[in-house]
Design a binder for these strands. Sequence first.
DNA 1: GTTCTTGCAAACCCTTTGCACGTCT
DNA 2: AGACGTGCAAAGGGTTTGCAAGAAC
Lengths: 155, 155
Amino acid sequence: MSLPTDNESLKQQFADFLKRKKYRGTQERFNVIDRIAELDRHFNADELYLYMNGRGDRISRATIYSTLDLLTTCGILMKHRFQGGSAHFELASRMPDHDHLICMECGHIEEFREEKIDVLRDGVCTRLGFRPMAHSLQIFATCHDPLVCPHNRQD
Amino acid sequence: MSLPTDNESLKQQFADFLKRKKYRGTQERFNVIDRIAELDRHFNADELYLYMNGRGDRISRATIYSTLDLLTTCGILMKHRFQGGSAHFELASRMPDHDHLICMECGHIEEFREEKIDVLRDGVCTRLGFRPMAHSLQIFATCHDPLVCPHNRQD
DNA sequence: GTTCTTGCAAACCCTTTGCACGTCT
DNA sequence: AGACGTGCAAAGGGTTTGCAAGAAC
């Protein structure tokens, strides 16, 4: 194989964080990283729960939520609150510093990278006296050809 | 008095919307606009509910939620999903096209206007084949002097 | 052995819904 | 009068929590 087993380094990063903060390195916590890497997309807590248990892991929702929280705190995951109900997560390393365009017709989420945002963000922080840590830009838009949007409705 | 009674024009705008969409112009719906204008800040549904009932209005949560939804649909309100639990609303006319910087230490929300975002947003939409409708940029940052942040904790 | 984490289920918060009553047109 | 909106309380989805059993240190 030649793909860099990137989630090994993620697990290492997580292990370091846990040790530093005196959390325990349990099997469940490391399993979660492996499964997230397999998914390789946005997901919410319940999707991960169903995926893992469907795959043979035995893990509870409580553990899922708690682990997602730890992974977000240590910067391995990004947590998004899009329009609707549940929070969405994704690996921060998956596509660094990208943002999201949400189609208002069908809810489809398009990812994009626009480097100028970083400059702009840092400028705002400087102006207001803050140190930038992260940002989340969501653009709401409609596709030019509504017929392409599967869930488009006329009224 | 000389302040422009701006919420009169908001109520007119809302009345037009209701008529156009064949919704009824009830007293509750217009009361909500008046109280929101009084608040003049971000709020969530329950804050508005408590404010209105504390002030003597009798209005239910169901009506609050339904009216906030209508006001968001017709563009009078902007609905935000910040970090935590509940959705936040604010008058779209209060500060047009502004975004938010959230302090990660104390949760304080700072508003700012950065015109370059509009250009950038339109560029992204053009590139991806969408028509821009709105955007929401949240910058997460920490203040340079943590002592100023009232809720700052060391660990 | 002690302390932390897990799993389960119940509790919780925010929001939506069903139904009877009230109000707008 | 008829249709729609309101208020109430109950249901709903997503997330958190309390507690006993189990795993990490």
